[in-house]
Amino acid sequence: MAAGMRQKAQILDKEGIRRALVRIAHEIIERNKGTENVALIGIQRRGVPLAGRLCGYIEEIEGKTVPVGVLDITLYRDDLTTLSHQPLLRQTNVPFPVKDKKIVLIDDVIYTGRTVRAALDAIIDLGRPRIIQLAALIDRGHRELPVRADYVGKNVPTSGREVVAVRLQETDNEERVLILEKD
């Protein structure tokens, strides 16, 4: 990923990520008036550890665990023909019925909105939730579809030449969010 890219700025450090997630956890509880029927679904890949962490924070706050699922949206993408590289197909694992649940979809960055669109299709194929909400650690703008996040860790205005890189301990062995710029 670093090839042809240079670091422009660091937006969040480890503590910043933690604070943003704790705030989102509070907002999820507040918006849903508790945790009843709430379930978290992380979008592969970095949405998955974020969902796990949010589950932990919610438990710390409310003393209750919410179910967590994992969603791979590769097979729902609309750009299969245009990508030269395809993401590795990963496991989808939603070990609870989504029917009538309040689903909170979790991704690291919201950008064009196409991933979320694919994720909505994927979830609806699993059943009919009562409501679907969206949480993103970073909202970098440039939406191409009418999609809006319900919970945002940090809004970061970016240009098209820039890339937002979320680095998490579980996937990247470090903990920070960077803006990279193409050379």
Binding site: Q86, P87, L88
Partner: peptide, 17 residues
């Protein structure tokens, strides 16, 4: 899996994340 991969779903781990 075979139809998906041979119809164009080749793979690369990180690049498209």
């Amino acid at each position: 899996a075979i139809l998906y991969l041979f119809a164009g779903g080749g793979t690369d781990d990180e690049a498209a994340d």
